[in-house]
Simulated assay, not measured.
Amino acid sequence: MREAMANAPVGDDVFAEDPSINALEDRVARLLGKEASLLCSSGTQSNLLGILSHCQRGEEYIVGEQYHTYKYEAGGAAVLGGVVPQTLPVEADGSLSLERLEQAVKVDDPHFPISRLIALENTHLGKVVEQDFMLQARALADKHQLQLHLDGARLFNASVATKTPLATLAEPFDSVSVCMSKGLGAPVGSLLCGDKQLIKRARRWRKMLGGGMRQAGVLAAAIDYALSHQVQRLADDHEHAQQLAGGLQKLSGIQVEAAQTNMVYVNFASEQQAKAVSTYLRERDIWVPPQRSMRLVTHLDIKAASIERILTTFAAALK
């Protein structure tokens, strides 16, 4: 990957003159079955650009209260775009209640913000959200003349886990954000995909938000390498997560939520216990968050042998 970065031809991306970025944006757009895409510095930025490109000030997006676009992105849509979030509870499978979703759509009345967008997520907490729900959400959006955005930060994981083409998973959506710096292992970057007009608006927003890049083809080259070499191996991460979950479930004193893709959730009896386990593991060069609900994520640097060491050290920590 670093060799590809060193050899990347570059230009000025603010003027759409970087050949490596142009080629990457075209490749990702075709992968997801969309007209165009835009390289962004992060998933937070690509999601924000998507929301701002769909919604005007005083309009709203309807979103799960545990989804990343609402809970973990610093309120950017509201702070920077004047876009109001209307949150809904997230179902156990990562979807939203279609009944609640329809009830949340506002009537055309000056008392209310204007409903403009539904924002969904796939995967959610490591779970692949059923495509049937996405299609029903599309039908609901069409019924009420709404747009549909997907935070697909780990859409590649969903694709590999279900053996479903990316374009099929992305098809119901007007815009999709995909992240390259998680399981695919690129150092930086997410891409926003959609039609040409939406991406044109997003490019303007990106510039306004300080995200215009110059000779950034070195980053595109890293992502291009990841797309060519790191996609199918996501299945290894999923297998390692299953092994990790299975081993942790045999230990007493914790509750473990089994993985579907590359995430395992460990729930402790108290914050104190979680911090003690985290400290014990970190002292042995295994870094986990000191949280009562601890998320463990497998990735390309975690090998099968690492899982056994993690399980052994976890067991010792709990004792």
Rank of each mutant, 00 (worst) to 15 (best):
A258I: 04
Q272I: 11
A36E: 12
A158W: 01
A137N: 01
D237N: 15
F15V: 12
L209K: 10
C179I: 07
V264K: 15
R116E: 13
Y70W: 05
G247Q: 05
L39C: 02
L155F: 05
K196D: 15
D174N: 15
Q197M: 04
R292W: 04
V178L: 09
A78W: 14
A186K: 00
Q86Y: 15
A304P: 15
G43N: 01
A29N: 07
R201M: 05
R201C: 02
Q45T: 12
E308H: 14
V10C: 03
E121C: 03
V79I: 10
L155T: 05
V218D: 07
D26S: 14
M5F: 03
A16C: 13
I307W: 12
Q147Y: 06
I199Q: 03
I310L: 14
H124G: 07
E91H: 11
I254T: 13
T261I: 08
K163T: 04
A259D: 10
D132C: 03
P289I: 11
R284E: 15
A170M: 10
N122A: 11
F268N: 04
G58E: 00
T44K: 12
P172K: 01
R57G: 08
T168V: 04
E271M: 10
Q243R: 14
A305G: 11
K182E: 14
V288I: 13
N262E: 13
M1W: 06
P89H: 04
L311V: 10
G194E: 07
V83L: 09
A258C: 06
L251M: 11
R204F: 02
L244G: 09
L148Y: 03
M213G: 15
L234N: 02
A222E: 05
A119M: 13
L39R: 09
G76M: 08
V176G: 04
D142V: 09
A158K: 00
A315G: 08
D109L: 15
S53N: 03
W205Q: 08
Y265M: 11
V231Q: 06
L219R: 12
L184C: 00
Q66Y: 11
G246E: 09
Q232R: 08
Q56P: 02
L32D: 13
T69D: 12
A317G: 10
L49G: 13
E17A: 14
S270C: 09
P113W: 15
I223H: 01
S95R: 04
R206V: 08
K207Y: 09
G33Q: 01
Y67S: 01
A6L: 12
K163F: 07
K34Q: 08
Q215F: 06
K275Q: 15
S159Q: 07
D236Y: 02
I118Y: 10
V264W: 01
S97I: 14
H299W: 14
P172I: 00
A235R: 11
D132S: 12
N47P: 04
V14A: 14
S306V: 10
G33E: 00
G194C: 03
Q273T: 02
A161V: 09
A274G: 01
L101R: 02
L234T: 06
A186Y: 01
R100Y: 11
L191P: 02
G212D: 06
V297P: 12
L135K: 03
